[in-house]
Computed example of a mutant assay.
Amino acid sequence: MLWLLLLQVLASCLWLGHSEVVTDFTSCPQFFYEGITPNEAFAPNNSAKICQRYNDQYHFATLYDRTNRIPVYSAYIYQPGHGPPPHPWFFVEPQLIGKTDLTEMKRESVLIAEHKFTLEQIKESQAVVEDYDGLISLVRGHLSPSGHQTTKDSKMATFTLTNIVPQDGSLHQGAWNNYEFDTMVKASEGCTTTYVITGAVPGDIYIAGGRVNKPSHIWSAACCVMGEGSLKAWAAIAKNDENQVRPVTLGELEDRLTELYGQKRVTLFDNACPRQ
Rank of each mutant, 00 (worst) to 15 (best):
R107G: 14
V185N: 09
D241S: 08
L143Y: 02
E114Y: 11
Y73D: 04
A43Q: 13
Q263F: 01
P80M: 02
Y54G: 00
V248S: 15
V129W: 08
L5Q: 09
N55H: 12
T158C: 04
T160H: 03
A41L: 03
A221C: 04
I136D: 12
I70L: 09
I97M: 12
Q57C: 09
G169A: 10
E34A: 15
E20D: 15
D270S: 14
H87I: 14
H217T: 07
D153C: 04
V72G: 06
Q95Y: 07
I207L: 12
L5I: 11
A187W: 00
I50E: 10
Q173K: 15
C13H: 10
K99R: 10
M226F: 02
D24C: 15
A187G: 00
T162Q: 11
L231N: 01
L171R: 08
D65E: 06
H82T: 13
F42R: 10
W3I: 11
F31N: 01
A233T: 01
V225F: 00
G210I: 07
K106A: 11
L119G: 02
L63C: 09
L6R: 07
R66N: 08
Q57R: 14
E242T: 12
R275L: 09
V110T: 13
E180N: 06
D168A: 08
L143V: 02
W176Q: 08
G227D: 09
N45G: 13
T192E: 12
E124C: 02
F91H: 06
M156C: 10
N271W: 04
H148Q: 08
E180P: 04
K232F: 03
